[in-house]
Design a protein around this nucleic acid. Structure first.
Lengths: 224, 224
DNA sequence: TGTTGCTATTAACAATTTGATAATATATAA
DNA sequence: TTATATATTATCAAATTGTTAATAGCAACA
């Protein structure tokens, strides 16, 4: 599940904050709230949320201003940002898109819509779209071939990287040895039995964190 | 298909009942109807439906009251509950969420919407799709190779896991010893008679719960 | 061109876990 | 009660994985 993620909500209307907070917490998300634009910027910096929901109309800074500000900082380049607008406001939508929002929510908030959008965003974010997989402290960027553990880059060799990326693509799922061989080495190449183990060992060694579990007689799985 | 499931509909308007009943039956569901909140509670208890559709506004007990009542009973902890509301009523939605509804339907009923929601709900909660089998307190995740008993992970060896998963795949069904041998060991390997017993024993021991029943002279079955 | 550094693979062995069996005890149906 | 099926336990062989070191291959580079 994509739960346990941090979500920052910024809105000047306490009711809205409460509705959203209640529903997201019920789904298992960790929620941080801000009552205006300035507070939003501040809390975004200190809490590093995975998703930020910004009301467009707020005293201090508008949601769009907050978004623009955050996007300047590379830390928030990958952070999901969703705007909250009254009704469908074409003009606002365009401005929002320009400042790099990932989606929209229109008031009045409908909890189910909210939840499904949020869930969908995390799903999308975790897989296809960015090619970046983020699980716990580990971030895997398929395009750049970089693994980051708590903001520290870790250099993995190609096979090691592919293996880790494969396992992390479905956290929890056990990949059978055959499955791994087919997906990473292909059906043509035949490698010895110990090859996988050695790569696994090197990954474990380099990460220094035990996030790969052996399921004896079955395969390996990635867990946080 | 997830058909053949039982659905209880509770609404005080005969027209609505009829529309829903007709459409769901046409789709292959077994439908039970109730004309008010009290009848809904009673029929829920006697028929153990897989899904309950509750009109919020009903004489006797409101849908929300019915839901709250049922959710108190562990039997209905996993039962799907959907509310029927007039238009999108935010206040009701929040109350509904608090009482543990799984989704909403707004009047007027649009048959297509109804069916797709109902189908989607069963799909979402049908663990067969995900490879997860849930029986009572025990949850077996084939993909993750994990057995969970009351939120505690239990580690089973491969053969033990396969055996338990097999038995649990059809709770109540008695698996003959031969059947088990063929399905788990295959026809090629020949193992002694006591082998199954020993594995069964290990499973019982690890689960600490007696959910595997011996049917003397026949085989074993999984029950809660 | 040869050197250097890294990667992928394998071999060899250690450590561990698993699965099957035998021997014995217990339960159950007729 | 007795015959038969199952439960239990300990034991050992087999299977599986972990670890280390060695080797071959490759790419960058002076």
């Amino acid at each position: 599940m994509s739960k346990g993620k941090k979500i920052l909500i910024a809105d000047d209307e306490p009711d809205i904050l409460e509705i959203i907070q209640f529903n997201l917490q019920a789904e298992g998300y960790e929620v941080i709230i801000a009552k205006n634009g300035d507070e939003a910027v501040e809390k975004a910096r200190s809490f590093q949320p995975d998703l930020i929901i910004l009301d467009v109309m707020m005293p201090g800074k508008t949601g769009i201003e907050v978004c623009n500000l955050l996007r300047l900082n590379p830390t928030f380049k990958e952070t999901l940002i969703v705007f909250l607008t009254a009704l469908s406001d074409e003009t606002t939508e365009i401005k929002g898109l320009e400042s790099g929002a990932d989606d929209y929510l229109t008031k009045p908030i409908r909890p189910k819509v909210l939840l499904s959008k949020v869930n969908a965003l995390f799903r999308r974010f975790n897989k296809e779209d960015t090619g970046i997989v983020k699980v716990g402290d580990i971030q895997i960027d398929r395009e750049k071939y970089i693994v980051t553990l708590k903001d520290t880059d870790i250099i993995l060799a190609r096979k090691e990287f592919e293996l880790l990326a494969l396992l992390a693509s479905k956290p929890g799922k056990v990949f059978l040895r055959n499955e791994i061989l087919n997906l990473i080495w292909g059906t043509e190449v035949i490698v010895g039995d110990r090859t996988i183990d050695v790569h696994i060992r090197k990954i474990r060694q380099k990460l220094g964190l035990d996030c790969i579990t052996t399921v004896k007689g079955v395969g390996y799985k990635f867990e946080v």
